[in-house]
Amino acid sequence: MILKLFTVLLPWPLRRRALQRWFGYEIHPTARIGLAWIFPAKLVMAEGARIGHLNVAVNLDLVDMGAKASMARGNWITGFPTHTSSKHFAHQTDRRSALIIGECAAVTKYHHIDCTSTITIGRFSTVAGYRSQFLTHSINVVDNRQDSAPIIIGEYTFVGTNVVMLGGAQLPARSVLGAKSMLNKAYTDEWMLYGGVPAKPLQPIPADAKYFTRTDGFVY
Rank of each mutant, 00 (worst) to 15 (best):
T7Y: 07
V8S: 14
L10I: 12
R15D: 01
R15M: 07
R17E: 13
E26P: 13
R32F: 15
L35A: 12
L35C: 09
F39S: 00
K42S: 12
A49L: 11
G52K: 06
G52I: 04
M71T: 12
G74V: 04
I77Y: 01
I77C: 02
I77R: 00
T78I: 04
G79P: 00
P81T: 03
H83K: 12
S86V: 00
R95D: 04
R96T: 07
E103T: 09
Y110H: 13
H111V: 07
I113R: 07
D114H: 06
I119W: 05
F124Y: 06
F124D: 03
A128I: 07
A128E: 03
A128F: 02
Q133V: 05
Q133N: 13
L135H: 01
S138H: 09
I139S: 06
D143C: 05
A149W: 06
P150L: 15
I151F: 14
I153F: 03
I153A: 02
G154S: 11
T157P: 08
V159I: 11
V159G: 08
V159Y: 13
T161S: 14
T161W: 06
G167F: 13
Q170L: 05
Q170I: 01
P172H: 03
L177S: 08
G178E: 06
G178A: 12
L183Q: 05
K185R: 04
A186N: 00
D189A: 13
W191D: 02
W191E: 09
P198G: 01
K200V: 09
L202I: 01
P206M: 11
A207M: 14
F212S: 01
T213H: 13
T213Y: 10
R214N: 04
R214Y: 06
